[in-house]
Nucleic acid binder design. Structure first.
Lengths: 197, 197
DNA sequence: CGTCGATGTCAACGCCTGTTGGCCTACAGT
DNA sequence: ACTGTAGGCCAACAGGCGTTGACATCGACG
């Protein structure tokens, strides 16, 4: 009883199956079109079980969209390789786990999902950027610009699926987008109109 | 005369009101949550009129999401100001007309909307980039990268509404994002790390 | 005036949704 | 072996959806 999770319940496998199916459906169809019935069918259980374990569709989404960017410690990265490090990390991260795509799709129509998206970038990305030693007065804007490029890449590559963006391999992405991120993070503020080097 | 639209119909005002309401609802709520009943209520007509004039919800969306980027003739822009010109144009364009935001929101969940989004960028943006004289072998990838930054900005600014991105004024956007677009358009290929030729 | 097509209203259909409560089943503790 | 309880299934509810067809009204033209 002093334990927070004293023993495994028999239903843990079911809960996990529901969560797995939910993430896949939310990623593929977005919040509205992903129905509880379809998720339950994928998990091979009854729709009412979803309600029992997660309370409501909103509750299920909240559980399925728990997401940690797993950002590396940027203070241990050479300052001139921040951009390359970040873009490589993001591509690897969201290619291995569809949760961010689910969140992105849902955030377009579901206010709660948009709020969670804001929270993730405020807490995790803006925090990591601030810890790089960026000027606190500009760190938020820099993080926002980084987010605009990172999420735009995710949007065009995994949601809208623009063919030329889908066709870029991770090495090309690092070479093209890395310098953009690098500039948003380290370019003196305010930037001039000259191109970066 | 042999006019294709010989005379004004009395219903033209209704059609226009429906279209206006539809664009607003699709932009605010996305495809699924924007209901025909709500659109009809905004336009102060009966839901069945929407069906009469546009056939179905898909047909209404197709009519509402007709979109021209109105890109300027890039061959008449100094080559070193392409990026700044484009970002300024886009901010002005989508701040004056919610259609692109409607399309972006809908494209996250509706396959037809995603297809239309791909069409717009293939026909209009990729075309304009190709006409700048970019190497035809890389023009598509360059246009895709431009799209990733432009759409990412629209997403974070108008859909997810990340506060630091919402707070940037058009001048700051031009100064920060212009050089990014410029680099995607004109940086020698491949940019810094070579992988495939 | 009477006719007819265009314009608009009303009520309903069939379907699918999230959600609920009751019932069956199997296992853990005694 | 008996029983309590957690895990799971089934059937149904109320509500909203896109869509349909029958009916009213208007405006132009003979």
């Amino acid at each position: 009883m002093t334990d927070t999770a004293p023993r495994a319940r028999r239903s843990d496998a079911t809960r996990a199956a529901i969560l797995r199916a939910a993430r896949a459906r939310f990623a593929a169809d977005g919040y509205d079109r992903a129905t509880i019935r379809a998720i339950a069918a994928d998990a091979r259980i009854d729709p009412s079980m979803v309600m029992r374990y997660y309370g409501s569709k909103e509750g299920l989404f909240a559980a399925a969209a728990e997401f940690d960017l797993h950002l590396p410690d940027l203070t241990r990265v050479p300052p001139d390789r921040l951009g390359e490090t970040l873009i490589r990390h993001f591509v690897r991260r969201w290619e291995a786990d569809g949760t961010l795509v689910a969140l992105l799709r849902a955030a377009s129509t579901n206010p709660g999902a948009a709020e969670r998206m804001r929270g993730i970038f405020a807490d995790q990305l803006a925090g990591a950027v601030a810890r790089t030693g960026a000027d606190p007065a500009t760190a938020d804007r820099r993080a926002g610009l980084v987010a605009s490029q990172i999420l735009g890449l995710a949007l065009t590559r995994y949601v809208v699926r623009l063919p030329p963006v889908v066709g870029l391999d991770p090495e090309e992405l690092a070479a093209w987008v890395g310098p953009t991120i690098q500039r948003y993070l380290t370019q003196p503020f305010p930037p001039s109109h000259a191109s970066d080097g």
